[in-house]
Every structure is written in structure tokens, then in C-alpha cells.
Amino acid sequence: MTKIVRTAATEPFKPMPDDDMIVCRCEEITKGEIRKAVYDGMSTTNEVKRWLRCGMGLCQGQTCQKNVQSIISRELGLKIPDIGQITGRSPVRPVVMEVFANDVLDVHEEA
């Protein structure tokens, strides 16, 4: 991880005209919320995700991650590798619990 020094903001938060635009579709998180989270000290993709839930919805950030990252990196003046990625986790698609529970059966080859 890149070294990031965090201290309290000295300037008040500056709203922007498109702050109400949705960025994370699943969890309905806006650009303004993301900017405010960064202002409040959330300084990595994961921290913003954990604070706001953007990237924690059904699609697991597959749609919005890049857009969230570009907002964070622009606000902080950091590069995307510096703010990190959401970790790829199993299951990569939603799986019904009963199916998960049923993990001993054969997978049938296509007919």
C-alpha cells in the first residue's frame, strides 16, 4: 500500500452541482456522498466502500468501481493504484444459499 498521511480538513466541504448524481447504482450512492466521504478522511477504495456501501451491493462493484475510484483519486490527487482495489471474492456471482449448501453433487456435463 502507498503511504497516505491523513489529517483533519482545514477548508469547509465544497459542494458541486452534480453531487446528486448516482454513481453506485446498486446502493444508490451519489457523487456528493463519495466526495464527502473522502473529505471526511476515507482515503482508499475500500474505506469509501465500507463507509458508504458503494460496491457492496448485488453487483459487488463490477459496475461502479472505476467511477468511484476516479472520484476518490481526483479528490485526493492520488493515482488509482495508490487507493487500491476491491478484493475479488467468491462467489463472483450471487449464489442461492441452498445451492451453496448443496456442494456434494456432481456437475452434469452438457447433453
Binding site: M56, G57, R89, S90, P91, V96, M97, E98, F100, A101
Partner: peptide
Amino acid sequence: ITNSVTAPCLSRGIIKYFPVLKDVKIIRTW
């Protein structure tokens, strides 16, 4: 990393106590 048998194992445990959750989808393990 996660273990390939843990989520199935937890799912079986949960369904035994809460059958109603059997159709709920798991979206992430860690």
C-alpha cells in the same frame, strides 16, 4: 483467501436453523 468448503458448510448450518433463508443469495464471502 477463503476455503472452498466453508461457505457451503455455513449455509447448511444456517438452513438447518432457518429454513426460510434457503433461497437467499450469498453475494460475498471473506
